[in-house]
Design a protein around this nucleic acid. Structure first.
Lengths: 109, 109
DNA sequence: GCGATACTGCACCCATCGGTGCACTGTATC
DNA sequence: GATACAGTGCACCGATGGGTGCAGTATCGC
């Protein structure tokens, strides 16, 4: 419990880039090929491939080579759920602590 | 809407490191000085300071120099909420899309 | 079969990250 | 005032990230 979680690492890291969040949003509107992802981003195919690789490593997207095209779609939602779960869990202790702190401030100042 | 969000960038990036998540968990149990954060981590004071700096930049922690000690506590919960909000919002489209995809697979295979 | 297309692999660049050590400043403490 | 203590600033290091270009390779369309 509380041990290191490579999955959390990878997921949060993958989400920390606007370009990658953009890819996720785009894939949320349907699958796309690498070229289709690259086109609106202004990046190279290689640049996109790296981003997709990071997203794929985090389990956020899945890719499949079909013909000469690589199709990208959203991966299983469990990955996002895990990250969301972490945030939600900590938001609770967070708010509890802030309440306690504010009570302290009110009493001290 | 959909524009780049430096806040999201910084928050997700800050959360992508187990050491930093550890700091957040520790601060969830109460404020601490840099030395107190450094001690159980096996890191240098400088190493901890950098992590705290990243967390502070993301708005996840606040620090205050009191005497010769720097006290660290959790920052406003809004930062975490924003990140949680992003995840939650996308988890919806996610699951919607997966359902549609599964229907497609069932029909196709 | 041939040319265009869609990707892949590789090497490369520069910036940043994670982490260190060291010299320093400011604050307690005696 | 001298000493220990908590942090700070700076320079440094190796590894990695984001991004590029270029030379392949596989596939599609004619």
């Amino acid at each position: 419990m509380g041990a290191v979680s490579p999955t959390l690492d990878a997921t949060f890291f993958a989400l920390s880039d606007p370009q990658r969040r953009g890819i996720l949003e785009r894939l949320g509107r349907g699958p796309a090929t690498l070229s289709q992802l690259a086109e609106p981003s202004g990046l190279t195919l290689n640049g996109i491939k790296k981003h997709v690789g990071i997203l794929e490593f985090a389990g956020l997207v899945e890719t499949e080579k079909v013909g000469r095209v690589r199709e990208c779609r959203l991966g299983p939602a469990t990955t996002l759920s895990e990250a969301g779960g972490w945030i939600e869990a900590h938001r609770r202790t967070w708010e509890g602590r802030l309440n306690r702190f504010e009570r302290f401030v009110e009493g001290a100042e």
